[in-house]
């Protein structure tokens, strides 16, 4: 028997009650799967229901119709095997770096065992913040804060990592650096990643596959297999095929030609 995919969005319909009475149709016949340890980016225009996707997968929301399955079993509520990295780091400024990383344990079980702390320190080493465990959050740069966010999401060793435009609030240089860092972390700790982004080059650099969503109601419009060999480096971005693919995706997204060069 075939093993079920890590994530399966099965024919999802999502309808919200609108403020003015007219219901909002957010997702329509959305159907795609992600295999175990695959890195998939979801790309789409604003308001295509990307955050809805994230809430569905984290179990904070149930689909109006259809089903989200994780390793073959339908999601009925929040679960431990899904770690989330948000757009903003959303750390707790009154806690130290290590206490932020272990916060999920304190929050869920009311206490942090020495084992949890050890695992937290391990995660900090993984994101290269081992020396910053006892620093305060406001002593860290934006990129470092987002690393803490990643360490926190990895603490419970989830099979699935959800990332909601995690680098979009960073400056361009930190952003590139964090992309390569994420690839390194993903290589050291293979996870199934669903990465939501607005950036075509970012999606191309990171992913095995890119799901392009349409405007509302969001549905899968395109599925692109990214052919570049791993590990990916700066050279990958310099590959002429990289620019070519970026342009072709951009053309399809906007349905008209656009000059390249946007980061």
């Amino acid at each position: 028997m075939r093993t079920p995919p890590a994530i399966h969005f099965k024919d999802i319909e999502q309808v919200f009650p609108g403020k003015s009475g007219a219901p909002i149709h957010a997702l329509h016949a959305l159907d795609f799967r992600i295999e175990r340890h695959e890195f998939v980016s979801v790309l789409g225009p604003s308001g295509c229901g990307k955050s809805t996707l994230l809430r569905l997968l984290s179990g904070l929301m149930l689909p109006s119709d259809g089903q989200v399955e994780v390793f073959g079993s339908p999601i009925k509520g929040p679960r431990d095997d899904v770690g989330i990295v948000f757009q903003r780091p959303t750390l707790l400024p009154w806690l130290s770096v290590i206490d932020n990383v272990t916060f999920p344990m304190r929050h869920k079980y009311g206490r942090v065992t020495p084992d949890d702390r050890k695992r937290g320190l391990e995660m900090l080493d993984l994101v290269r913040l081992g020396d910053f465990a006892d620093k305060r959050i406001d002593e860290l740069s934006g990129g470092m804060q987002q690393r803490v966010g990643i360490a926190r999401a990895l603490l419970l060793d989830p099979d699935i990592l959800l990332m909601d435009e995690p680098f979009s609030a960073l400056d361009a240089l930190s952003r590139d650096e964090m992309s390569f860092e994420l690839l390194r972390i993903w290589r050291e700790r293979p996870k199934t990643v669903l990465f939501i982004t607005h950036s075509i080059p970012e999606a191309l650099l990171l992913s095995d596959r890119i799901i392009v969503l349409s405007e509302r109601p969001g549905t899968v419009r395109d599925e692109i297999i990214v052919p570049f060999a791993r590990p990916r480096t700066l050279e990958t971005m310099a590959d002429p095929r990289f620019t070519e693919m970026a342009n072709s995706i951009r053309r399809r997204l906007f349905s008209h030609p656009v000059d390249g060069g946007e980061a």
């Binding site: 809430r55 984290s58 179990g59 904070l60 509520g77 929040p78 899904v82 989330i84 948000f86 757009q87 903003r88 959303t90 707790l92 999920p104 929050h107 869920k108």
Partner: peptide, 11 residues
């Protein structure tokens, strides 16, 4: 996001 984090942990 923090509220979502809290809810996703079922704290």
């Amino acid at each position: 996001e923090l509220i979502e984090l809290s809810r996703s942990l079922r704290a």
